[in-house]
Design a binder for these strands. Structure first.
Lengths: 230, 230
DNA sequence: TTGCATTTCAAACGCGTGTATGAAACTATC
DNA sequence: GATAGTTTCATACACGCGTTTGAAATGCAA
């Protein structure tokens, strides 16, 4: 057991370097140099480079998931077991967006690391992401409670688009700034969250203010929908 | 000059392998084995591995961009210089979605390659993508003509979200299928295009059927907007 | 056929990587 | 303070990679 000093120094240095320069060109030697520890320490404490990356990513995404679920649970309790669809989407995209776009929170290293993880998609991280389905299903369940009668496929598409907008905003933050020549304010995180939530809710409810709308409303003007369940 | 046989065999083999297995674990040796040419041929004909990848990507994305602009031009001419916002978004996301999700088009190798390029984000490709700004600006210009008086930032956000949804759908195709347990039909490309267009238009017009709406309508319920231009 | 330029080829180079080794330095328990 | 277990360290290994080399083969004009 002992001090753990080396172990956490490696974790901190690795996260910092990965956040700054991406997974592609950060070697174990870079990491141990930054952490002032011996090269062999990585394999001693983590087993392999991939396991080090996995541990970093698991830690951070567990934290985000916990935050999301807390927000969801709070919203459902406040609504007597049924949260508004706005609140649900807010809980879904808020923590991630705040974490990755927000101002320095613990030096924002964690945030920048998660951005990299979302951009570069290295094998150990991809493996973990594929097990995130269960977590998302909890949101689908909440959405089902909030919008009863709505087709399940519609719920999945709404969730999918919400994640699309928030992840893409994180990934392409720089590009959007450049494209819009600074006209899109990427610093006001709350405004961005509201923007994403608003569009997501519109996608799910078809533009109406989202008060228990009758049923499927996002049906495209033409072109068939899913035909699974006729 | 000569036969070009070797050159094109390399291009074809590389695209096929990258499409199937990703950039991460395809080596030059894999490629030349698949193409039945000598290892040194790659450097002789392309200069380096990165330039080979770049040539592949440039070729394919030029084709997509051309397709997009053709669709846009056709829509603008049909509307007397002003296309409907639906048509513009359609031209923006249609070609990419059809190319990457559609059924076999020339063996769909090109499509799968572009999916990889959008997922893995390898340096030479990233460099090229960063020069795509000019191309997107043409769409912003068309949007400005279609929705005059609308805040520029709103147009950028709308374009951004449209790209978000189409790219994310391509990237996470498998995950969405798994999450929804097949309830989201990822095979009906036209329906997906309509879905993305519909939501994009709602994001831009605020849910109204998009007939030259007065002005900014996607303003979030609370939270400030951009403050650049006061 | 000769001569020159282009293209192919087998082989090797050089480098950087993640990982393994085995001894040395600690730390804690008795 | 001896001993067993844990952690650090310098060093080396083995391998795969993109790239280079220089000679052989090929194509083509005169």
């Amino acid at each position: 057991m002992a001090s753990d000093h080396t172990r956490s120094a490696i974790l901190a240095a690795a996260e910092r370097l990965y956040a700054d320069r991406g997974f592609g060109d950060v070697t174990l030697r870079d990491i141990v140099a930054e952490a002032n520890v011996n090269l062999a320490a990585v394999n001693y404490h983590f087993g392999s480079k991939d396991e080090l990356i996995a541990e970093l990513f698991v830690t951070r995404s567990l934290a985000t998931n916990r935050e999301r679920l807390n927000e969801l649970k709070a919203a459902e309790e406040a609504g007597g077991g049924r949260a508004s669809i706005e609140a649900i989407m807010h809980a879904l995209v808020g923590p991630t967006l705040r974490g990755c776009l927000g101002p320095d929170r613990e030096g924002s290293t964690a945030a920048r690391f998660m951005i990299r993880a979302s951009i570069e998609s290295v094998p150990p991280i991809r493996r973990i992401k594929n097990r995130e389905v269960d977590h998302l299903r909890k949101f689908v369940a909440a959405m089902r409670r909030s919008l009863p009668g709505r087709d399940d496929a519609e719920l999945y598409w709404g969730l999918h688009f919400a994640l699309a907008m928030s992840h893409h905003t994180i990934r392409e933050k720089e590009r959007l700034t450049k494209l819009s020549e600074g006209q899109c304010d990427l610093n006001d995180v709350n405004a961005i969250v509201e923007r994403v939530v608003t569009v997501s809710v519109m996608a799910l409810t078809g533009g109406e203010p989202a008060k228990k709308a009758p049923a499927r409303s996002m049906a495209p003007p033409y072109g068939r929908l899913t035909r699974q369940d006729l």
